[in-house]
Design a protein around this nucleic acid. Structure first.
Lengths: 210, 210
DNA sequence: AAAGTAACCTACATACATGTCTGTATGTGA
DNA sequence: TCACATACAGACATGTATGTAGGTTACTTT
């Protein structure tokens, strides 16, 4: 590859990164709206202001583009939702912070991309499907650990196995937000209610928004 | 292929109905697994034991097939889940019965068809998408009515507007079951927990399965 | 039993999306 | 300034899915 001495201006690299970002975001939006198989790469490229030539210059094929989108979404989600939750010392607080953060994150339409892709690939043996299940699996084990810790400390009552509760927790986040996306501010209130219920926690008193 | 019982003379209408059912179920499975745009009608027909010729003889085109599938799923869902819930006099009981019934219903893979189709069509202006939103809307208003009644009677504490809670309720059913499908028996326990939480009800004591 | 109709299959015409390839302009290092 | 690399556009070849039209088998009616 080309050596990059520090201090030297990298105009080409900047340009490349900017184009790549634009294409990734357009692809995420396209997958969210139309699904992987239905969206034409010409549309993805056009919506970003390019042609398929640029797209194929930056990504080997449609599958690689989808994998890059998955990685990109996972990274932004971790930065905006996962990391703040990880700072919570208490496992129950971490789960609640994650749920609230997810509700906020889902106010953008790009968030539905994981759902759209998983619907299309969960049935088959496909690289994109595997990447998705790996992302979910990573999240689920992290959540299961917190749930197990909370059960052992007595912070939440006994219940189904942590791994199952974790899957239910993630599925609830996804499903609830896909039907409530944009319904500010009740999205946060309702996701918190559902999660508390899943964990076996009593309801909090309801305060109507001003 | 299609062996008919000895001595029994099959009527054309029976034959047609049987073929139609087989194609509908195969289509539902195909849409669930691959999505609308990804599944090829040749596969749908072949999986039912026919060719595309039979399919196009019974359905005008792919869109009509999808609409028929939506109608068929709605009918079976109403028969197996909606009707038993409607027999409950108490609105909260009705919502809980519906949630449990949905968990049972979702143990079959066909149930994911609504989710698959809604992912693909919720963005556009398309006949299938409209049909789906109408189904959801009918369900949501029915649920919202029960939630409002329960709030007024004091059976559940105050909370967000019934229409929003109803949407959250349906989204939770869908999302939770798509991640927990087949996880017997915790699917029922967890869906009930989530719904109780959404409605603001306190948790029930947990009894581990024998 | 013959004629007619419905169920179903096979072959084809068409459209469209992917991926590849070539061309062009602009940036970059020597 | 020259040689080369990179970013991107546009055309083409290929595969595949839809929809249609014509034919064959199975049932129905007279």
């Amino acid at each position: 590859m080309t050596a990059r001495p520090e201090g030297v201006r990298e105009k080409q690299a900047d340009r490349r990164a900017r184009t790549r970002s634009a294409l990734l975001e357009s692809a995420a939006r396209g997958f969210s709206t139309y699904g992987y198989g239905n969206v034409a790469l010409e549309r993805v490229a056009a919506e970003a202001g390019y042609t398929r030539g640029a797209l194929y210059h930056l990504f080997a094929n449609k599958e690689e583009l989808a994998l890059a989108v998955v990685k990109w979404v996972e990274e932004t989600w971790n930065a905006e939702v996962g990391a703040p939750a990880a700072e919570e010392a208490d496992p129950v607080d971490a789960l609640l912070v994650m749920a609230r953060g997810h509700a906020i994150y889902c106010r953008r339409d790009v968030a539905r991309v994981m759902r759209a892709l998983s619907v299309e690939f969960s049935g088959q043996d496909h690289a994109v499907g595997r990447a998705l299940t790996e992302v979910i699996q990573r999240l689920a084990t992290a959540c299961a650990g917190r749930i197990a810790a909370a059960q052992e400390s007595g912070a939440i009552p006994p219940g189904p196995p942590p791994q199952e509760v974790a899957l239910a927790y993630l599925g609830t986040l996804e499903g609830l937000m896909s039907s409530l996306a944009g319904h500010v501010p009740h999205d946060v209130e309702l996701i918190e209610r559902a999660v508390r219920g899943l964990l076996g926690l009593p309801p909090k008193a309801y305060r109507a928004e001003p």
